[in-house]
Simulated assay, not measured.
Amino acid sequence: MQVLIARLLLLSCLLALPAHAGQLSASAALDSDDRFRGVSLSHGRPDVRLDVNYDEEGGLYGGISLAAAPGRGQSAPLTHYTAYAGYVTRPASDLSWEGGVSHTHIDDRERYDYDELYAGLITAGITARLSYSPRYYGRDVQTLYADLSGSRQISPHVRLFAHAGWLRRLSGTWGLRPRYDLSAGVAAALRACELRLSVTQTPSLYAWGREDGGTGIVLSAVRAF
């Protein structure tokens, strides 16, 4: 029931976005590894990614992030997406807050689908967020994910960015241990593209039992439209 409510909220938010009063943005990227919260969903393979976002001037927003990586041998590509919708306040004293809901689908394994409700604060290039899932990775477990992300422009064409996250089980039967994920990197604007180099660190994967965590280096090329 909680999952159904979250999905209905997401759908209603997306349908409520007026088609004439906002801004649509998109970007395409090529990554050397598809990392999500520090974990490689592509098992170390490169991926292509498409991000589409809609921002309404009143504060509503929504979008989707879709990624695909080559499968093994003749298998189909590995895909996953996260769709989201939310609301963010206009900055007051350089501080604003946001809240929303997201749905994540991983490959063709619907049993891993999960929803999250999130709330956060945004100030001076830093975002702090809490995300709650009633069935994380489709398992009988409730989780809370706390993360802090930031970005700092150090020159007209170069910026630094970093992220730290902490996932904790609140209740449920799945023996999910608390785990962290860290990442940091540098991005350089090069004509119409941005090149990013980042280092990630996290324990092993949540669901499949593979060692797809550890330390990883990711190189990305991103083109905004």
Rank of each mutant, 00 (worst) to 15 (best):
L4I: 05
L8H: 13
L9M: 11
S12V: 06
C13V: 01
A16G: 15
A19S: 12
A19G: 02
G22A: 01
L24H: 08
S25P: 02
S25Y: 02
A26F: 13
A26H: 11
A26M: 13
S27Y: 08
A28Q: 09
A28V: 14
A29V: 02
L30C: 04
D31M: 07
D31S: 11
D31L: 13
S32G: 13
D33P: 04
D33E: 12
D33R: 05
D33L: 04
D34M: 10
D34F: 15
D34K: 01
R35T: 13
S40K: 04
P46Q: 07
R49T: 08
L50E: 12
L50T: 06
D51F: 03
V52M: 14
Y54R: 08
E57F: 12
G58V: 02
G58K: 06
Y61N: 10
G62D: 08
G62E: 11
S65P: 02
S65Q: 12
L66H: 14
A68C: 05
A69V: 04
P70H: 08
P70L: 06
P70G: 01
G71H: 08
R72N: 12
S75H: 14
T79A: 10
T82L: 11
T82N: 12
T82Y: 08
T82W: 07
A83N: 05
G86R: 07
Y87M: 08
V88S: 11
T89M: 10
P91W: 06
S96F: 06
S96I: 01
W97Y: 14
W97V: 11
E98Y: 09
G99W: 12
G100N: 06
V101L: 04
H105S: 13
I106G: 02
D108L: 09
D108P: 00
R109C: 03
R109H: 11
E110P: 02
Y112S: 03
D113V: 04
D115L: 01
Y118M: 07
Y118H: 13
A119D: 02
A119M: 11
A119G: 14
T123A: 15
T127W: 02
T127M: 04
T127S: 11
T127F: 00
A128K: 00
A128Q: 03
R129M: 08
Y132P: 02
Y136W: 14
Y137P: 02
Y137F: 15
D140I: 01
D140G: 05
V141D: 01
A146V: 07
A146E: 09
D147E: 15
L148S: 05
L148E: 06
Q153Y: 04
P156A: 07
P156V: 02
H157S: 11
V158H: 08
R159I: 03
R159Q: 13
F161Q: 05
A164N: 02
L170N: 03
L170A: 05
S171A: 13
G172I: 00
T173Q: 15
T173C: 04
R179V: 06
D181F: 12
A184M: 12
V186F: 10
R191I: 01
E194Q: 14
E194N: 07
S198Q: 15
Q201T: 09
Q201I: 00
T202N: 07
P203L: 09
L205F: 05
L205Y: 08
W208K: 02
E211Y: 11
G213T: 09
G216N: 10
A221E: 07
V222T: 12
R223D: 04
F225T: 00
